[in-house]
């Protein structure tokens, strides 16, 4: 046994990981979620906005991290729709517009068809320049955004009239997978204008520890990875589905569904680390 474990072919580990992820997906294993303070803070920040408030949704991620961030982006947009907020979508990542399109199709066009493009939501698309874009639009929006993603002049879009800069937004929601992302939004938007720009964010698991130093002054709420998304999902579903006696649609339970494979995969990781250490100590005890 010792010899087998010592020389364990890594393909066995791969196989175990495959099963750990596949089995809960196939058996649709789901576990309850208990929202933590940070998820509740994100929920409250959106919840307290009156109908018609302006929300900037910056989707700075790509298909690589869609698995982790897609469900929270979906839920954030749904929450904004339920609250009847004005949504302004932008992206600092080149494939961000595709992520925005996905969410618009999944949530707005299918469940909130009464919302009108240009009056209730607008997609302003991608702009190159990373934090340079943030730095400009915090003081002068039209320096960079003269048209929307479809090429329509911004002055012809009703909901864009009267907006001078990001300070006109009531909340900025950033869903980010790295650079540029939440850190840049905090440094270049929230920090120089603490009384005017409020930001909440959702990010990948590896980013979350790096963003904790900004909580709560510069970043009142943070959804960390799929766990944060599942907690936030629970809060939104509780308020807008269960309290109204409705069963939430599967697309609004996506984060919770993805927590099943995460649980088993984490347990496997712990098991593998323990096993690796057993081998390590056995090896050390056998050493002359």
């Amino acid at each position: 046994m010792y010899e087998f474990l010592k020389n364990l072919d890594r393909r066995w580990v791969f196989l175990m990981m495959l099963l750990a992820v596949a089995v809960p997906i196939l058996f649709r294993a789901q576990f309850p979620e208990r929202p933590t303070g940070l998820a509740r803070a994100v929920f409250d920040e959106i919840e307290k906005l009156p109908a018609g408030s302006r929300v900037l949704l910056a989707f700075d991620f790509d298909p690589a991290s869609e698995g982790e961030l897609g469900p929270m982006a979906t839920m954030v947009v749904r929450h904004c729709c339920e609250k009847k907020l004005k949504m302004y979508f932008i992206a600092l990542w080149p494939v961000g517009p595709q992520m925005i399109d996905d969410v618009i199709h999944k949530v707005i066009l299918s469940d909130f068809p009464e919302l009108v493009y240009g009056e209730d939501y607008v997609n302003l698309g991608f702009k190159p320049g990373n934090e340079g874009v943030i730095k400009v639009i915090v003081t002068d929006w039209k320096q960079l955004y003269t048209t929307d993603d479809r090429g329509t002049n911004i002055d012809q879009i009703p909901m864009c009239r009267g907006i001078e800069n990001i300070q006109s937004m009531d909340l900025v929601i950033n869903v980010s997978a790295g650079y540029p992302g939440t850190k840049e939004w905090v440094q270049y938007a929230a920090t120089p204008y603490p009384d005017k720009i409020r930001i909440v964010a959702g990010c990948t698991g590896v980013q979350a520890p790096l963003l904790y130093p900004y909580i709560p002054q510069q970043l009142p709420g943070l959804l960390g990875a799929i766990k944060g998304a599942a907690e936030y999902e629970e809060l939104v579903v509780q308020k807008y589905d269960r309290k109204k006696g409705r069963q939430p649609a599967a697309k609004y339970q996506e984060a919770k569904r993805r927590m099943g494979p995460q649980l088993v995969a984490h347990l496997l990781m712990i098991g593998l680390i323990v096993l690796g250490n057993v081998v390590f100590f056995m090896e050390r005890s056998r050493r002359p």
Partner: peptide, 11 residues
Amino acid sequence: VASAAFRAFRA
């Protein structure tokens, strides 16, 4: 990560 954790994460 799983393979690396098994081989390298030692106490």
